[in-house]
Design a protein around this nucleic acid. Structure first.
Lengths: 216, 216, 216, 216
DNA sequence: TATGAATGAGCTTTCATTCAT
DNA sequence: AATGAATGAAAGCTCATTCAT
């Protein structure tokens, strides 16, 4: 049992170290020696657990994608049985922006994208575990709220795409593809603006806000 | 002069070949020999014109960024002195989606992002030449139209960001980070939905559409 | 005793597997893991029984050499107290050619020869157990037959060498160093021709044949 | 021209060094670094000229085989238009034994044999360039001499095989597969005995010797 | 005794880069 | 200016061998 634990621990340590090093250096510049050293094991141990550099890459990214996906999926929970939809939307927006501002998901996107030619199937897997899963969960919530008369999203999939775009798309643009950190205030601005625009399009009449806070 | 032209032509051929090969293989996997061969010159000739592999990469991406930026900037021209704003917005949306669906800008994003750790300043340069330039041009148009009473964008920068996000963000999501081609009809759907949502938030009352085309 | 037998069996299984794998891959390309796997044991078990890869090699080849040597020595038995010398010689010739056409002795030669730089003493040991032993036994028989007036071999050692050369040397030549299988008919041709030539030189007058079967 | 010479010289130097190192260490134990160092070039230069370690091996052995084959073929020249056949045979025998006693052909055989599993086609190529070529040339001479009434070899191919076996086969046996050097006197003994046995079988009546020099 | 796990050493190969022409 | 040839450096991967159970 100790042995098994040791094996599991070591494998996990290798995957963690791999993700860190890959995130720092990129796939090609990352060398297995550095990953092994970061994991505190010898190089062949890495090959014992994960047969290839490519396999190492795929496994590390898959594991990271699962974690990121879980965080993102959790962000739409406030929309479940929400009484105050604008408030719940804002909360979800803030959770998502915070999640996407983290270094891990940004590195994940970067690595998946840059490795997309060498690992064509990996991008899809990661998208499934993160974006698709998130959009699907969000669309479910929007559909429920529409059924409940609290929103008007005739096509919840498009609405979900748009809400996510208003959040992550603007975040990407503002953060210059994630290369600069945004202050919390700016994140809030993005969230507020996204929710306002979203509700302009999909809110029920009573909840639709004016384009700007006050009269221009 | 002929000599100079020959030199210029050769340099341009090298840069073109470099972008192509980098786009196919990524920075590290691309080897100078293949670039030289694609450009029809010998390896040392590449080094004569562009001293480094890194310099070669930077130069090729800068050139591509200028081209992409020009195409994007042209896409907002329909908004200049537009009589029918919804129609002009739709046209701009379609131009932008078409431009972003092309292989070159996608490769440019991928390369800039994956090279962002090794070439930190490059990402910013490219963003300036493409996204920032585009957003700025768009914000200009939105401000003018707001002044003219044809739109209501109290903060044109945010409005521009959101319109772009509704287009490119959704495009990215639907195309799975650009890994699959979208049919023209889906591009039109995205454009239409983006314009509708944008006008819900920022259109003048007479132009604000219903959330969906028909009755809910 | 059961335990001892188990141990012996395991050791034998390892040696057998080792010879097979070495014969297939050569010394260097053969990896201990594959040998262990072919023997049905774990890698460290191999090291428990035979301390080194080199020891493993030597032991496997020695065991094979003993077997091959026994088979070869048995081939000269027809010459013991032979009444019809040509017939006995032919029988011996056929037995030897059959023995040398087998895969095991060929692999043994190949391995001993290729390992001769790394294991200089091994070649001699194997030669002693096979060729030298065979030549010696054959020379003994020839000497006895000469004493009995049935042959004329003033130097039985040379005569033995020549008979063996006429068999195995021609076999090697025809089989291209053992790389191609010879049909049984060709083996018989070789045996017949060898015996005829041998008897031309060393047969008693009554038994000396014409160079060819029929008239020249 | 100097450049071309330099290239040719370097390639030849690499091939020579390769054969030497392969002969010393065997294919697997030989490392490219040592070959490069023996050739006086850097490791990548070896790869520039001969793309693989395998290619390097094949090329080095082919070149050596051509040289060895030429030497062997020259050894049968004394049989061309020979007046004194026994003397010419003896001369050829001595030339062949000397040639086969050299280190190069022995290493060639060893390497070809040990590499026969990894390079199956190579053994045949080498046999063609050496043994087959030699046997063919020898059979030609024997056929001519038989036509001229100076020998009686109804099947010159078999006779050639047997003569070669009486020489190289016995040489191999005596030298323990080439692992020990034979003194010149022993080589002469082998040659004399081989010629005597050969002439017993294939000589014309006037030239057929007694089994041993004198009466027993 | 037998084994899963771990490691130190080493090899082939590739590549960016520089000379010499 | 352009190129064939050469090289220093580095990385992925494998293997024989040893611990700890």
């Amino acid at each position: 049992m100790t042995a098994t634990r040791g094996r599991i621990d070591k494998r996990q340590a290798i995957l963690d170290a791999a993700f860190t090093v890959f995130a720092e250096r990129g796939y090609d510049q990352a060398c297995v020696r550095e990953i092994a050293s970061a994991a505190g094991v010898a190089k062949p141990t890495v090959y014992n657990h994960l047969s290839d550099k490519a396999t190492l890459f795929r496994s590390a990214l898959r594991a990271a994608a699962d974690e990121v996906g879980a965080v993102c999926a959790a962000a739409v929970e406030p929309l479940r049985d929400a009484a105050d939809v604008p408030r719940a939307l804002t909360e979800t927006a803030q959770l998502l922006l915070a999640a996407c501002s983290d270094e891990r998901p940004r590195a994940l996107r970067r690595l998946a994208l840059s490795g997309s030619t060498a690992f064509p199937e990996l991008l899809d897997e990661i998208q499934d575990a993160t974006s698709v899963r998130l959009r699907s969960a969000l669309a479910d919530r929007l559909a429920r709220l529409t059924l409940a008369g609290q929103l008007r999203t005739p096509d919840p999939d498009i609405a979900a795409d748009q809400l996510l775009a208003l959040l992550t798309g603007v975040l990407e643009s503002r953060s210059r593809l994630g290369s600069r950190e945004l202050p919390a205030a700016e994140l809030d601005t993005i969230a507020t603006a996204a929710v306002r625009t979203f509700l302009s399009a999909y809110g029920t009449p009573g909840e639709t806000p004016e384009p700007a806070a006050g009269p221009v």
